[in-house]
Amino acid sequence: MSPLLLQGVASGIVTGCVYALIALSLVIVYKSSDVINFAGGEMVMLGGYLGMFALLWLGLPYLLIFPFGALMIFIVGALFDRVVLTRVVGRAIPGQSILVAMIIGTVGLSYVLKGAVRVIPYTEEVRRLPPFSSGAPIFVGPVVLQHQDIAIVVAAVAIMAALWAFFSFTLVGKALRATSQNPRAAALVGIPVRVMSMTAWGLAAALAGVAGILLAPKLLITPDMGVIVILALAAAIIGGFVSLPGCVAGGIVLGVVQNLIGLYVSSRAISLAPFLVIMIVLLLRPQGLFAGKAAAKKV
């Protein structure tokens, strides 16, 4: 393998890890309330701004801005579910799909978050966070890795592992899974379904926010950086949209494919890659690349 190819794969894995985190956030929302969260990208953006705010204004140490940002965005997500979505679902008209109303609600949230950030005068200037850790790049064989890239991968893997442990071993995690599989049965065994829905939204929002803080040193923070959500959507679709491990694999596949297209086809085609991937996968294998058979839809 040529060094160029290896380098492309390595940096694809780094960006893929971030896509995977945002994709996880989208899929957790989808599994809990059947909607695509079009405000997911704005939650990433909000994470970036909150991280910068905590670091530069509050003077928090770098490690503490992650829990700070995560907590704040958790509240935003949970409140949105409690205040807006509960009401939309509660007023559903029999026979008419509430999906459209819920999705328009998330679009509304995306405008509210973007608009709220834009009215803060501080955001007129484009900024980026200092790197999480700096130092001479590390050479692994022919591949050059920045400290920041390694930090991103380590943080993303740690978060994914924590998420896996949370869903597998803790009571709340198991209750979340039960609610996602069958809300009525979950309610019958005494799981507070409404609290679970809030938790899922909060958790998803927090994941997107942390992804935003991880991205902030690599990308410029602007109110419009939420467009990155399209890449996360593509990653989630590659993984089948209902599987958490699928998201991680999908994110990394997408990151690597994008880099290889940039290397061997043209840099212009990079931005087309996610859309082509979405269409091809949905038309040929709507269950995702990794699922064995079509995922059964819950009733």
Binding site: G108, S110, K114, G115
Partner: peptide, 11 residues
């Protein structure tokens, strides 16, 4: 404030 108002109207 346009974006913010627009989002609030949608919600």
């Amino acid at each position: 404030w346009q974006e913010l108002v627009y989002g609030l109207i949608l919600i």
